[in-house]
Amino acid sequence: MKDSNQLDGLAIEANGLVKTFKDNKAVDGIDLRVEAGTIYGILGPNGAGKTTTINMLATLMKPDAGEAKIFGYDVFKQPQIVRSLIGVTGQYASVDENLTATENLVIFARLLGLSRSAAKAKAADLLEEFGLTEAASRPLAKFSGGMRRRLDLAASLIAQPPLIFLDEPTTGLDPRTRNQMWATIRRMVKTGSTILLTTQYLDEADQLADRIAVIDHGRVVAEDTPDNLKISIGKESLMIKLKNKDEASVAIRVMKEFLGITARMIADDSINAPLETPDQAADVLTNLRAKSISIVEINLQKPTLDEVFLTLTGEAA
């Protein structure tokens, strides 16, 4: 038996996880290695297998093949030990709609073994911390989406688990509430927790994660730090619409020769040029002007999940 103080090294180690629903391979051989004390992002479109992966790691679902360890404990052979090391915040509010915020937290705390008074104190603390004190005795049916997510997150922190799963923590939230969630998640990791989060937004993974696994069709298609991933796909890109579509191939050649940029056609008359820095945009335009290539429209774009997938898998998300 390990001492709980020695929870270092790898928080998650998964090899070859497979899960098939009828004839749909939701997860098709996923490997993950997550260092303790980091935020790890799983990035992918709807249906890529993100939630299924989390469900298997969180003991909610048995895989058809593969193995996984949480802090060295086998997820499928020692599920009860693993459950005492994790907190799960699901994509759909895993709190009780009919009860008040306080009642929800007290019940989870009691189930985790806290005494009646300790459970009440813990609930009050967490509600305060997540700015929900005023709504404490309101039934959840009257909560906004953001409040519900915050309560959900609070419920995952009752036992102060060393590993927390967050399944799409900000999907469906407005930008302001999303920023609050991000701040909360960053605070959590400062105190030493490891976080595995899934997201559909490159921006979110970039903001929060130390490492990102991009998954598609149940497979990891890329795994790296956000910076390296962005370098591989270009940080930003310049969309150029040409006046004369016959000049497109010339324009692409010019960018390759003078600037080393590999641009590609995205329509008959439009080119997408990935940039290292926004400064390069000026160079591109100057070079095109020097060749007398006329432009009708330009647009500086941040890479989207779509482009990540286009670059990594060769097909749209």
Binding site: I81, S84, L85, Q160
Partner: peptide, 11 residues
């Protein structure tokens, strides 16, 4: 929120 679980890890 301490990194160490408050729960006994015995399963």
């Amino acid at each position: 929120t301490l990194p160490i679980s408050t729960l006994p890890v015995n399963g």
